[in-house]
């Protein structure tokens, strides 16, 4: 999306409004799969956008023009997610890591429709973090393997194996869940 990086170089604030409109759907979806929780996903995505803006503030025009915005934003989102979990672990009194599903109140129909697949969220939550992240970046955010590897800070072979092991584990978890449900 070189149009968007052009817009950012032209006017960082106005260009960023376009970036938010363009990418918020895919970032929210990715955040939803990472957290399993609608409200956390919205907070996480908004925080990631703000963190991205603070980073862009210090980038010169060449660096902004060279950005692969989508992969970069997903990476910022992932790092923000990891920070949130670290903070929640350090200060468990403050709400803690969000658990999938289980809203405190009775959800309305719109909320039920918007909340995605609690069984999948529960299965994702049971994966080791790095496998969950690899699967979500590859198959939810739709990054290619080199971008997933860069975001995770691992080699491409390692990234590929995290993705395939994560997928295999997910299949097992979901299959056993479906059996016990029926």
């Amino acid at each position: 999306m070189s149009d968007l990086t052009d817009a950012l170089v032209e006017d960082l604030d106005g260009g960023f409004a376009q970036v938010v409109r363009w990418y918020q759907g895919s970032l929210l979806g990715t955040a939803l799969r990472l957290t399993g929780h609608r409200a956390s996903a919205e907070d996480l995505t908004a925080e990631a956008f703000l963190r991205a803006f603070r980073a862009l503030r210090d980038y010169d025009a060449d660096r902004i023009a060279a950005l692969d915005l989508r992969a970069w934003l997903v990476t910022v989102l992932l790092n923000e997610h990891r920070n949130t979990i670290r903070t929640a672990t350090r200060r468990p009194a403050l709400s803690g890591a969000p658990l999938p599903d289980r809203p405190a109140h009775e959800p309305g129909p719109a909320e039920v429709a918007a909340r995605a697949d609690p069984d999948l969220a529960a299965a994702l939550a049971r994966l080791p973090a790095v496998q969950r992240e690899a699967v979500v970046l590859r198959h939810v955010a739709d990054l290619d393997v080199p971008a997933v590897a860069a975001a995770l800070g691992v080699g491409e072979g390692t990234a590929r194996s995290h993705v395939s092991r994560g997928l295999a584990r997910l299949r097992t978890l979901l299959a056993s869940h479906d059996r016990s449900a029926s």
Partner: peptide, 10 residues
């Protein structure tokens, strides 16, 4: 896995 459309303007 592919996410549902989250209709929300941030």
């Amino acid at each position: 896995l592919s996410p549902p459309a989250v209709e929300k303007d941030l």
